[in-house]
Design a binder for these strands. Structure first.
Lengths: 360, 360
DNA sequence: CTGTTAGCGCCTTCAG
DNA sequence: CTGAAGGCGCTAACAG
């Protein structure tokens, strides 16, 4: 009872037309130049026979897989998750699918994954870069496959990017703390190799300097972007002889680490605990006791925007290739350089939890 | 400067061999029956020319895409996240890649995604079913593409499945609460259409009955598996004239909703708040104030196990197809029916947070 | 509007 | 152990 796979030829025969007509009728970009009548005949035959186009054959011919790949440093991350959902949704709406790969925070792995996706003829790649350089990404982009960076910029890759307003978000976060009367404020977490961290530190610094506050060696405790870095960072803060009364966390993971450390510390009585303003927001943020403000990135929107860029680039490529004149010998892409988009962040205020608990 | 894509023929020419030899040498399952010498020559030529096999062409010929698809009701979910990481990791290790699709909690969408993946010739599918029936999944499985269910079972699809020990986990969770002296215990959340919920309710009921406790109409407040269901469930509990002193949450989302409701309620003084034992565990669980126990599922392990199953089925299929005798006319797969695997859960105890805060 | 005709790049018998 | 040859199923000119 094994069902053989039905081919376009059989459908053509059944409908009494040629394979070309069937192909045209069932084209993913709509049936153009096919009469209503034959269109119906073909549809009828195809659906009766349960015809499903062979994707590989189609790809081989068209050099397009209707697939977009995404490479992230890790999959287990709330930001990535929201991003992926945004991307997958937008993609599915356009008849594309999403290939997912993890670079495991390694540039080497990232290179391999890029190669793998390229081999699979993805029409575009969304990447959250693992390192500070992205020459391998640029190489791809300059050939056939559009690349769009998300969340972070890298050097050596002039490609499209969708980012949050990191500088502005950190600035705003710091301003809120200042407005609440805090003066001894420190920044926790960061990595000079990561553009996102640099921008956030810049925003923080600007707000502090504008407020006439001094930055000393302990004001900015970068040292990583992971949970453990927040944990140790908070440890250092708590040990400090003159501890700050408010902190800015570089991201979700560092924030989490900081709260964990605080959770342990809390047991010791008689000390005012610092308040935290942090980048990133999740469903669990209301439960983090020290958190007073967050700068919420709209990851889903970033995903959608990234897809839109990719699809635009794909369309451009098509028209360029179809245009009668070949590519100009001049260096640089004639389709208009890289474009960087900044999406705004939303500042969210949490009240209650911390104070509430203290009162009990 | 546009790099043309290098084909197998060019490599063959450069290495002074035939395309067949290159193909054999560069086969993904290792170069068999090629002399050491030619193998090296081919490798050298291929890498010098930057040859990358055209995946579509290969798929067209071999009818395998070295890709596994996953369909989940939603992507933004901690359980799914860990699962995906487990799957992607294991897959990459085997030279496969992962196609991700969301069914948006709709069986209709799920059907479409299944069709889409099938069209793309995925070698297997991992699915977390959206509904209670899975005839469309069985249909796939019986033809060419192995399917493995994760987390939930469905009716009408005798396919492999990887599940947690839901009954046992809920039983154990309830036992812990009983051991702590709680007697008025309610179960919150659930959906009769979802096997996971049924099993967890069964485990809860068993523990209660064994303890000689009575189940009345308010003991089990199913009514959904989402955050909002936990929220309203907890609302009802709090309004109850004789509120329970401990609760069992059916899953992560319901648990979250319950905690949210509690967070609001907390403001009113003078009432002992119930303790929660919940299925699922995340990095944020330590911050959920009412949580005393969780039953942690090992999602990454489930992912790995699912991949192992899929790959096994793929291998079986190959050998069956290669075997000289055709398929036996008898109904049923001769490769040994469906296999259901149950992975144990780990009970985690949280102490401190709740009590601590009360003390202040 | 529809049919004919070439391949896309690779794998895989079948000979040698 | 290696080479020659025939498609896999589909699309995209090019005619008609």
């Amino acid at each position: 009872m094994r069902e053989r796979t039905v081919t376009i030829r059989e459908v053509a025969a059944a409908a009494g037309v040629s394979t070309a007509t069937v192909s045209r009728t069932l084209s993913p970009d709509g049936a153009e130049g096919v009469s209503e009548e034959t269109r119906l005949r073909v549809f009828a035959a195809a659906s009766k026979m349960g015809y499903r186009a062979n994707h590989a054959a189609r790809s081989l011919k068209t050099r397009s897989s209707r697939t977009v790949g995404i490479i992230a440093p890790e999959l287990t991350n709330d930001f990535f998750m929201d991003l992926a959902e945004g991307i997958a949704g937008e993609l599915e709406r356009q008849g594309y699918t999403l290939l997912v790969a993890s670079s495991a925070n390694s540039v080497e792995e990232e290179k391999k994954r890029v190669a793998m996706l390229a081999e699979r003829m993805v029409d575009g790649m969304v990447v959250i870069p693992a390192g500070s350089r992205g020459d391998h990404l640029a190489a791809r982009a300059l050939r056939r496959t559009p690349v769009v960076l998300v969340d972070r910029l890298v050097e050596g890759a002039d490609v499209d990017a969708v980012l949050s307003d990191n500088e502005g978000g950190a600035y705003e976060l710091t301003r809120r703390l200042l407005a609440d009367g805090f003066r001894r404020i420190c920044f926790v977490g960061g990595d000079a190799a990561i553009s996102t961290a640099r921008e956030r530190i810049a925003g923080f610094s600007r707000a502090m300097l504008e407020a006439g506050l001094h930055l000393n060696g302990e004001t900015i405790r970068s040292g990583g972007m992971e949970v453990r870095d927040g944990y140790t960072g908070m440890g250092a803060v708590l040990e400090s002889p003159s501890p700050p009364d408010a902190l800015v966390a570089v991201n979700l993971l560092v924030h989490l680490g900081m709260e964990r450390r605080l959770l342990e510390y809390r047991r010791r009585p008689g000390r005012v605990l610092p308040v935290i303003a942090a980048f990133d927001e999740t469903a669990y943020t209301p439960f983090l006791p020290a958190c007073r403000y967050t700068a919420a990135q709209d990851a889903a929107a970033m995903g959608k925007e990234a897809v839109r860029r990719i699809l635009e680039r794909i369309a451009e490529r098509r028209t360029v290739e179809k245009s009668p004149v070949g590519r100009s010998p001049l260096a640089g892409e004639e389709t208009g350089g890289e474009r960087i988009i900044r999406l705004p962040v939303t500042i969210v205020r949490y009240r209650g939890s911390q104070e509430d608990r203290r009162r009990r």
